[in-house]
């Protein structure tokens, strides 16, 4: 084991990490198992069956809802991450900006309002200005509340980043833009990736704001699922979740493989 020779190694941390992933994935295993349940219940086992997958694939509504959710999450993530990155760069690298605490406050403002209040406020506001863009309405609302989730990791990264490299580049007469492109952004990338991931999962899971802001024809998966629980979730929801999980595993594997190839 090279691990114990790694100077950064700390006893127990790998075990905590292992425990962390078990903790994170234990409910998912249950979820996948029950998607094959023969009875209507998502929590009482009655035998093996593919019935719910057949049902889910025949259910246009649930598929439309899942597609809507993914589309919204992708657009909101791109928008929120871009906006948050620009703001974080300006706030942390531009010394001439005044009122930084105020701007910092504005950027995490969407986080401070209880969801239902944001939902009612946004609904009232959209109706008042007559905004009606179908999924666009939801994408705008999601972009807003995803900004703090994208901003904080990026900012945390920037705050600790050594500015000497950027200074060196500028000393070598690199333009501001070139410095940004070749030095700052690559260094910032882990922060941007973390922020984008948070924004994505936040958007994918949002219920209350989406429910209020959604127009006719733009039901998302959380809306579909949350209103189902009045009866109790059926394994059909588990089946759809499992398909989404499988999809995400494929995306993750692909990006991992591509990332590896690019390096060699």
């Amino acid at each position: 084991m090279t691990r114990s020779r790694d100077i950064r190694w700390l006893p127990g941390f790998s075990w905590v990490t292992l425990f962390f992933f078990v903790f994170l994935y234990a409910p998912l295993i249950i979820l996948v198992v029950f998607s094959f349940n023969a009875s209507r219940s998502a929590t009482v086992w009655a035998g093996f069956s593919f019935e719910w997958y057949t049902k889910a694939f025949a259910n246009d509504d649930i598929q439309r809802a899942a597609t809507n959710s993914v589309i919204i999450a992708i657009f909101a993530t791109i928008a929120a991450t871009t906006i948050a990155t620009m703001a974080a760069l300006t706030l942390s690298r531009n010394k001439r900006v005044k009122g930084k605490p105020v701007f910092g406050g504005v950027l995490i403002f969407p986080l401070m309002i209880p969801e239902i209040v944001t939902a009612v406020a946004t609904l009232t506001f959209f109706a008042a200005i007559g905004l009606s863009l179908g999924l666009g309405n939801i994408i705008i609302a999601h972009t807003v509340f995803c900004i703090p989730f994208a901003y904080l990791p990026i900012r945390a990264r920037l705050d600790g980043m050594d500015e000497s490299l950027e200074a060196a580049a500028q000393d070598l007469y690199a333009s501001k833009f070139t410095t940004l492109r070749l030095i700052t952004l690559p260094l910032l990338m882990p922060g941007i990736v973390s922020g984008a991931m948070l924004a994505f999962i936040i958007s994918l899971d949002d219920f209350i704001i989406t429910l209020m802001v959604a127009e006719a024809g733009s039901t998302t998966l959380p809306i579909y699922i949350y209103s189902l629980v009045r009866i109790g979730i059926t394994p059909e929801v588990n089946a759809v979740s499992t398909v989404l999980l499988g999809f995400s595993v494929i995306v993750v594997t692909l990006s991992y493989v591509i990332g590896k190839k690019n390096k060699t």
Binding site: A216, T219, S227
Partner: peptide
């Protein structure tokens, strides 16, 4: 096209706000 909601209050709030399309 079928959309769904969870309570009478949600329906009321949405229609009161002027949401149309249903």
């Amino acid at each position: 096209t079928l959309d769904t909601y969870d309570s009478n209050e949600t329906l009321l709030a949405k229609l009161q706000s002027g949401a149309t399309g249903y």
